[in-house]
């Protein structure tokens, strides 16, 4: 594996990093965890002229809840930081469930949450959870910061909404109204395999009633599938056999899978429906137990 020739810079500040991107007019790539970028460079699927390594920039490895209740995740937070968090399962069960299923344990030690969002792989796990949670990305460029809704951040396969001279410095998950419920299920043939199909569901529960409902899918379309509208049939309802069936049907209809060596389009759609049903049944069961 021999990549094309490239230059490498490891700036100490965000301003320097942004200046390097700005000066290289689209030929530079930001290197954080490198778990997707390095293989692509090795295989020459990507041949950037410059890699800007942001790992030496202090102050980007935080994960905290701010005064407004937003969860803020800095650009250098690794997958395993979410996986090992003791508070995340209660506050953000959807993220907690996905944290164990991202790639494999080795990749999770280096790969970053924000980097994975930027990579915009149609089979990526975190993008699905963030769309389900209504999250946002903070992009910083020469002219300062702006926020981008996750629904507008992923433009297509491996394409995000960042300008060439912007760095995604932070991901924001808005506060839950009520009690957070949700999960992430993924069908993979082997740990670290790309998802055959995966489902992220995030609900805000007001007692037994669904407040906000979020859902997104990976592996079943040319890009991460935004199924928030589909699952909104649950809003204002309680979780019962009927409402769960309706939601699962609606979400499965939103999937846009292709037949390939991982299975037929029908099979993948069926898995989506099965997983939505399983997640919602689990939530309903735990609500019942709590009540």
């Amino acid at each position: 594996m021999y990549p094309s020739r490239f230059a490498y810079e490891a700036p100490k500040t965000l301003a320097e990093a942004i200046a390097l991107l700005d000066a290289n007019g689209g030929e530079a790539k930001v290197l954080s965890g490198g778990q997707s970028l390095i293989p692509m460079v090795k295989l020459r699927f990507a041949s950037p002229e410059l890699l800007v390594d942001i790992n030496n920039i202090p102050g980007l490895d935080y994960m905290r809840i701010d005064e407004q209740g937003n969860l803020r995740i800095g650009a250098l937070v690794r997958h395993e930081d979410l996986e090992h968090s003791t508070t995340l399962p209660a506050t953000h069960p959807t993220l907690a469930a996905a944290s164990h299923l991202v790639a494999d344990p080795i990749v999770r030690t280096r790969g970053t949450f924000v980097g994975s969002l930027c990579h915009a792989d149609p089979q990526g796990d975190w993008a699905a959870t963030m769309i389900a949670l209504g999250g946002r990305i903070v992009a910083q460029g020469p002219k300062g910061k702006r926020e981008i809704d996750m629904r507008e951040f992923v433009l297509g396969p491996f394409t995000n909404a960042l300008a060439f001279n912007e760095i995604a410095v932070e991901a924001i998950v808005p506060p839950v109204k009520g009690k957070a419920a949700g999960s992430y299920l993924k069908l993979e043939r082997r740990v670290g395999d790309f998802a055959t199909a995966s489902v992220a569901v995030a609900l805000d529960m007001n007692g037994a009633t669904v407040g906000r409902a979020g859902c997104a899918l990976a592996g079943v379309g040319g890009r991460t599938i935004d199924a928030n509208d589909a699952i909104s049939v649950l809003v204002g309802k309680t979780l019962n056999a009927e409402s769960i069936e309706a939601a699962a049907e609606a979400v499965a209809a939103a999937a846009d899978p292709r037949t390939d060596h991982r299975g037929s389009a029908d099979y993948k759609r069926h898995i989506v429906k099965t997983f939505v049903t399983r997640i919602l049944n689990n939530i309903a069961n735990s609500e019942q137990k709590a009540a």
Binding site: D104, P105, R189, R190, V191, G192, D193
Partner: peptide, 11 residues
Amino acid sequence: YMDYLLPTAWE
């Protein structure tokens, strides 16, 4: 190795 799968200790 993303398409030709070798099992890991995990599964």
